[in-house]
Design a protein around this nucleic acid. Structure first.
Lengths: 136, 136
DNA sequence: TTCATTCTTCAACTACTCATGAAACGTTGA
DNA sequence: TCAACGTTTCATGAGTAGTTGAAGAATGAA
């Protein structure tokens, strides 16, 4: 996946409404949902929804097909997967900790940092201090 | 991972400079790189770099520590992994095609679509037609 | 102490994204 | 043919993000 394509996918996902849109569409799979039904479920105005759907479609994260007078939007699992794969592979170079963390759904190093036993097992920079005075 | 945190991480990643920043920092792991060195390698002005690094740090994707007069920035593999995990788990509900695609680094359904042999094996909406006339 | 270096913060500006409502478009059924 | 419906497009305005250059803070060497 080209970086520019991944970038536009990330830009598309980096919005609360559009992320909610993706989460709404995923369970419906290829069947998708009509634009009007999406607008109803999400409480968005038609024009606002259309704008967000267009962004997602342009980013290759959803697809559209016309059925009668409805436009059915469905998640594009391929595009979504490619975007995640880009992050994992091209961007993070399959960094072992990222992959592990990705498998467990949270920072695997957290308990190690807590125990402060094996610093080399926690290669991240400690980030509990909220940036402030930058202890030297 | 909370959605708001994932959202800010995605927003942080949805910028060319910051994505390049992450890709530059990942190979250096926990050793990180001094801000000045990053600016030199990326050809960014100091203030611009500082701005982007602050965004990444606030999103929990990089960490900073001060060494002598340098500020060393290093990737936070935990935050990065959590973000990817959020996309895969919370957002895509581990959708089988997304996961498969994620494993192979590209759309696994693509050749199937090309061959147009088993449509039910390619549950995504066809998206080769660039949106235009929406064939009904 | 003074000065150079490194980095951050600030203000001002531009460019972009987002939200809104009105209008337009294409399809459907009476 | 025409009204109803679902949807998109457009214009407008507000808010936010990104860029730039200057100023300021922290540090270490002379």
């Amino acid at each position: 996946m080209k970086q520019s394509k991944a970038l536009s996918a990330l830009q598309a996902l980096a919005n609360e409404d559009r992320l909610a849109l993706v989460r709404l569409l995923v369970p419906h799979g290829a069947d998708g949902l009509a634009a009007g039904e999406i607008a109803r479920q999400m409480g968005l105005s038609a024009s606002r929804l259309s704008f967000h759907l267009a962004q997602l479609e342009q980013a290759g994260l959803v697809g559209a097909r016309k059925v009668a007078r409805n436009v059915i939007y469905a998640i594009d699992a391929g595009g979504l997967g490619e975007t995640i794969a880009f992050l994992l592979t091209d961007c993070c170079l399959e960094h072992p900790e990222v992959v592990a963390c990705c498998r467990h759904g949270r920072a695997v190093a957290a308990p190690v940092i807590e125990a402060a036993s094996t610093p080399e097992a926690a290669p991240t920079v400690p980030q509990d201090a909220p940036r402030a005075p930058l202890e030297s």
